[in-house]
Design a protein around this nucleic acid. Structure first.
Length: 460
RNA sequence: UCCCCAGUAGCUCAGUCGGCAGAGCAGGUGGCUGUUAACCACCGUGUCCGUGGUUCGAGUCCGCGCUGGGGAGCCA
């Protein structure tokens, strides 16, 4: 007999004559002639209650089942007379697979997130983290569905890269050289002897390679791990995270913003529809306003605000910001929070930023002062999407590269795309973890990554 | 990298003015009960983060360090 998942059993319309469950004991309570055992198998948030009668041949062993122990239960399904559940299982046979040691760190009460981070290998066994990682999985599925339904091609851009000047944060270097005794030329490490014959790094973005495929396959997306060696200790940054980067040919900035808004709404609506019970946990224990926030995102059109107007609103707000606001200044966290959380109280897309604060590949607008860039700002999270229309005009792109100190020689292949059938195209990047944070209300990125990597921390 | 806060039992935390180290939960034993973070009684638990100093005396005050957290910068 194949095992039944608890999710399937609990959602049954009618009682089944025979079930086989395998899972872990969450809690056990003894009655006079039987024992209540609550079992969880990870298929859903809820436990199933098993009634173990003292007539079972191994009842003395069953009474020793501690929290965390693994069991296999064969039994019959019945309406539960107790409160809190529709169904329960009357055990015919309980096979003890393993009894957890009594120093099992997870208790039948609330733990702090900080403590659970020190036991990342066990925390997915808790309600909250189980829900978070199930939800993360569903969100990844939804990301693929959104793009596949719209005819996008999934492209695997490289994780090892020879490019070292994309300007998106600090890079992790990858080498096979003997770090205690590297080959040297003129006193400096000679990377001609390294594995690839030059320096190599972990990717900080698949965008440039993604553009090459958009200019061949039309609409593409990348979705994979991304690495930043920035020494930042905040609740929103990790050294290893996942990023989704769609890239669309024949697409301008307005259409790019349309896609970004439609995408976020699709993902939020998807989890509201398909992850209702897990979401309910977050709405109850993590963020009381969660459902209201999500409904706002799905129902309201995102505000679209040129950067110059954002500057005006900030200057007229009467707020005393720590950082000055003027045309040419990068928007700080306090400014973004004011706009999305206080002024508009909903997602805002800010676009047409000054070229001086944006990278070389963004398309210059006719005013020659701004570029066709856009950031999607959401309450509580801040920037969740950053994107732009790309500069498709070879001469303007080369000028921008020279201005910003990006090597034309190293990017010869990138420039080739502007020589052979160059077309307007656009794309954006969405941080998966920030999306998980948005839909769960979890405030620390370390709690939405199974085994998070941050500066000074790579246990597990 | 900068600013702020914290570190006491397995976990969550209290510890007053510098004067014998505490509670709840978890664990153990017994009892009770179609129970729901079950309940009741009893029992055990310490490098008070480390280090140096002030003091008759430091968990408590001071210096340095480590670890964790919050915020900023940078960004997704």
């Amino acid at each position: 007999m194949k095992r039944n998942k608890i999710k399937t059993i609990l959602s049954s319309e009618a009682a089944r004559p025979s079930v086989l469950l395998k899972g872990w004991v969450r809690t056990r309570r003894d009655a006079k002639t039987f024992s209540f055992i609550e079992i969880n198998d990870g298929s859903c948030l809820n436990n199933i209650q098993v009634i173990a009668d003292d007539q079972l041949e191994n009842y003395e062993q069953i009474k020793k089942l501690s929290t965390g122990s693994a069991v296999s239960v064969t039994g019959t399904m019945h309406d539960s007379p107790g409160k809190g559940q529709q169904w329960e299982i009357h055990a015919i046979k309980i096979e003890i697979i393993h009894i957890a040691q009594d120093d099992y760190p997870l208790q039948k009460k609330r733990h702090t997130d900080e403590f659970l981070r020190t036991i990342s290998h066990l925390r997915p066994r808790t309600n909250k983290y189980g829900a978070a990682f199930r939800l993360r999985s569903r969100l990844c599925f939804a990301i693929h569905q959104f793009f596949q339904d719209r005819g996008f091609t999934y492209v695997h851009t490289p994780i090892l890269t020879g490019s070292d000047c994309e300007g998106a944060g600090e890079l992790f270097q990858v080498t096979t050289l003997d770090m205690d005794n590297p080959p040297r030329t003129d006193g400096k490490t000679d990377y001609q002897h390294d594995f690839f014959g030059k320096t190599a790094n972990l990717t900080v973005s698949g965008q440039l390679e993604g553009e090459m495929f958009a200019l061949a396959l039309g609409d593409i997306y990348t979705f994979g791990p991304t690495f930043r060696a920035e020494n930042s200790h905040t609740s929103r940054h990790a050294s290893e995270f996942w990023m989704v980067e769609p890239e669309m040919a024949f697409c301008d900035l307005a259409e790019d913003m349309d896609y970004a808004e439609e995408f976020i709404k699709f993902l939020v609506d998807f989890v509201m529809t398909h992850c209702a019970s897990d979401l309910a946990l977050f709405a109850k224990f993590v963020d009381k306003n969660l459902m209201k926030t999500l409904e706002t995102i799905v129902s309201k059109n995102f505000i679209r605000l040129p950067y110059s107007e954002a500057i005006s609103i900030l200057n007229q707000s009467g707020k005393n910001f720590s950082y000055d606001v003027f045309f040419g200044a990068d928007l700080q966290t306090e400014h973004e929070r004011f706009l999305s959380e206080e002024h508009f109280k909903q997602p805002v897309i800010i676009y047409d930023y000054p070229k001086t604060i944006k990278p070389f590949y963004m398309r210059i607008n006719d005013d020659d002062q701004t570029v066709a860039a856009m950031d999607v700002i959401v309450p509580r999270i801040g920037e969740i999407i950053g994107g732009s229309q790309r500069e498709e005009r070879l001469d303007l792109l080369e000028t921008r590269m020279d201005e910003t100190g990006v090597s034309r020689q190293d990017h010869w292949w990138y420039l080739d795309s502007r020589r052979y059938g160059s077309v307007p195209h656009s794309g954006f990047g969405l941080g998966l973890e920030r999306m998980v944070m948005l839909v769960t209300g979890i405030t620390n990125i370390r709690d939405v990554i199974p085994f998070p990597r941050t500066p000074g921390s790579i246990e597990f």
